[in-house]
Simulated assay, not measured.
Amino acid sequence: MASIHPSADIAAESTIGEGTRVWQFVVILRGARIGGNCNICAHSLIEGDVVIGNNVTIKSGVFLWDGTRIEDDVFIGPNATFTNDPMPRSKVYPDAFSGITVRRGASIGANATLLPGITIGEHAMVGAGAVVTKDVDEYSVVVGNPARVVRKLSDD
């Protein structure tokens, strides 16, 4: 069974897996699917067309917008910024949102910004404060603005 703080606002039509913890002032919209054994920290928002795998940690202040796909064993640091609209304008909406995909085992550092439509590869690491403007290959470590590869991790 999931553990949900009483101040969290969870739509009845969302799915939350066994063992997941949802903390204070989290908002989860109708249709969102969250796996088991996740930790969704305080002051986070998850829109309806979001899929989150198992064993995912989402630290405080993270907003996941429609189209976002998070695979298993991902870590998302505090205040990491996900986007889904490449040309945002007030009251002007795209035909489809460009979600972000974060592959299995990847880590996103605090305050990193991820632009729409990118994929973070398996076991990649995005450094704190990085601005990611294009796909990140698996096992790559990226830092800076714009983010650039500074090294590769081994797969063992």
Rank of each mutant, 00 (worst) to 15 (best):
A2L: 07
S7Q: 11
A8H: 08
I10L: 01
A12M: 06
S14N: 07
S14G: 07
T20V: 08
W23E: 13
Q24E: 14
Q24F: 12
R30M: 12
G31I: 13
N37F: 08
N37K: 15
N37Y: 12
L45C: 09
G48W: 10
V50K: 07
N54V: 05
N55L: 13
V56Q: 04
V56P: 03
T57L: 14
I58P: 11
I58W: 14
V62N: 06
L64A: 11
W65G: 01
D66G: 12
T68V: 15
E71A: 15
D73A: 04
I76D: 05
I76K: 09
A80R: 02
T83D: 07
S90L: 14
K91S: 14
F97T: 04
F97S: 02
F97R: 10
S98L: 11
T101G: 02
V102M: 09
R103S: 13
R103I: 08
R104I: 07
R104M: 12
G105E: 08
A106W: 04
G109C: 14
G109V: 09
A110G: 06
N111C: 12
L114H: 09
P116G: 11
I120C: 10
H123Q: 12
M125I: 15
M125Y: 04
V126N: 13
A128V: 03
A130H: 01
K134I: 01
V141E: 08
V141D: 05
V143E: 04
A147D: 03
A147Y: 02
R151H: 00
K152E: 12
